[in-house]
Simulated assay, not measured.
Amino acid sequence: MNSTHTVLYDPTDELPLDREAHRDLIQAVLAWTAIPKPAAADLQHIALQLTGAAQAVASDVRRTAARLPGDHPALALADVVLAEADRRLSVAPQATVRCVQNRARLVRALYERLDRLTDVTLATSP
Rank of each mutant, 00 (worst) to 15 (best):
A53P: 00
A53F: 03
A56N: 06
V57I: 15
V57W: 02
A58M: 13
S59I: 05
S59Y: 11
S59R: 10
R62T: 12
R62H: 15
R62A: 15
R62S: 15
R62M: 14
T64Q: 10
T64K: 05
A66Y: 07
A66G: 12
L68C: 13
P69I: 12
A74L: 13
L75E: 08
A76I: 11
L77M: 15
A78V: 11
D79V: 07
D79S: 15
V80D: 15
V80T: 15
V80N: 11
V81L: 08
L82E: 11
A83Y: 09
A83Q: 15
D86F: 10
R87A: 12
R88L: 12
L89W: 03
L89H: 06
S90K: 11
S90H: 13
V91Q: 09
V91D: 13
A92W: 11
P93S: 07
P93L: 03
P93H: 00
Q94G: 04
Q94H: 07
T96S: 14
V97F: 01
R98W: 02
C99H: 02
R103Q: 10
R103F: 03
R103H: 08
R103E: 00
A104L: 02
R105L: 09
R105V: 01
R105P: 04
R105I: 01
R105N: 12
L106E: 00
L106C: 05
L106N: 01
V107W: 00
V107T: 01
A109Y: 01
A109W: 05
L110Q: 05
L110S: 04
L110A: 04
Y111V: 05
R113P: 02
R113E: 14
L114F: 14
D115T: 14
D115A: 12
D115E: 15
R116F: 09
R116G: 09
D119I: 03
T121Y: 03
T121K: 04
A123L: 10
A123K: 05
T124F: 03
T124I: 10
T124K: 09
S125V: 03
